[in-house]
């Protein structure tokens, strides 16, 4: 009997699809409700405001919320040799919510992987300076798929002032480091006071909630002001990435076991 082999053709093309994207930043965190989505959307708005070509990909398929924060109602990808994400407030925006409408999307792990692979295969991002990925909480199927399939993704972990949040984050960061993933820097959200040691701090802003769904209003909040500082910091780090190819860097890190952000030639 000749052996029959089933092959998933999608994985071969995913890196090509992201080839013209300079930097991919996965906004992660190890709990829900800590501000990953509002930060992802605002970071994308801020980078766009600073003149960077920016995309936003809502990877939280079951808990999609970017479309609500951005208010993308009425937008839908265009078909042209793939799916072209529409511009929403200047950002190329992709979400599974385009396709699930207002329905709940109950997905088990393997289905999450499949759906992510599908969208990574058919979405044509074209040239971007930044692609922000709004991740679901935790190191789960989505995070592991992104690590496996999107080699140049870097991680922007978000935490809130809480012992538990800090502790879970510390352990998770260890995992990312072991895997040789670049960590852009840890963000503390909902801060109450200035503390040293964070890459960036975003303060609690009780005015934020009412602005969700209206990007013009979000962009006038103090919260957005903090995110703008974060965006500047993130974009400055990119000088290093330009100097050496991202892929090369990951390889060096795997060889040397260094922290990706700190590799220098």
């Amino acid at each position: 009997m000749p052996k029959t082999l089933n092959i998933d053709p999608r994985v071969s093309i995913i890196e090509d699809r992201l080839e013209s994207v300079k930097r991919i930043i996965a906004v992660t965190g190890f709990k829900g409700g800590i501000g990953k989505s509002v930060i992802s959307v605002s970071l994308a708005l801020a980078l766009n405001e600073k003149g960077f070509k920016t995309g936003l990909f809502d990877m939280d398929f079951s808990g999609a919320s970017g479309h609500i924060i951005l208010n993308s109602a009425g937008s839908f990808p265009r078909e042209d040799k793939g799916l072209i994400p529409p511009y929403v407030h200047g950002i190329k925006f992709m979400t599974a919510a385009y396709f699930s409408g207002d329905r709940a999307l109950p997905l088990r792990g393997s289905s999450v992987s499949n759906a992510i692979k599908e969208l990574l295969t058919v979405t044509i991002w074209d040239e971007l300076d930044f692609l922000i990925m709004d991740m679901p909480p935790g190191i789960n199927d989505t995070a592991l798929d992104v690590i496996k399939l999107v080699k140049k993704a870097e991680i922007l972990p978000v935490q809130i002032p809480s012992k538990i949040s800090e502790d879970v984050l510390k352990r998770s960061i260890e995992i990312y480091r072991e895997l040789g993933i670049k960590i852009t820097g840890t963000v503390e959200n909902m801060s109450a006071s200035s503390k040293p040691g964070f890459y960036s701090q975003i303060f609690y802003d009780k005015a934020l909630e009412k602005t969700l769904g209206c990007p013009e209003k979000i962009m006038k909040t103090c919260f957005y002001g903090d995110v703008l500082k974060l965006a500047l910091k993130v974009s400055r780090t990119s000088k290093m990435s330009k100097r050496e190819g991202e892929r090369e860097k990951t390889r060096l890190v795997k060889q040397n076991g260094d922290i990706p952000g700190e590799v220098k030639k």
């Binding site: 092959i7 071969s12 793939g82 295969t121």
Partner: peptide, 14 residues
């Protein structure tokens, strides 16, 4: 025409 993107993945794999 998003079939095109899928066809590309087939060719790339082969």
């Amino acid at each position: 025409m998003h079939e095109w993107a899928l066809a590309e993945s087939v060719i790339k794999t082969i």
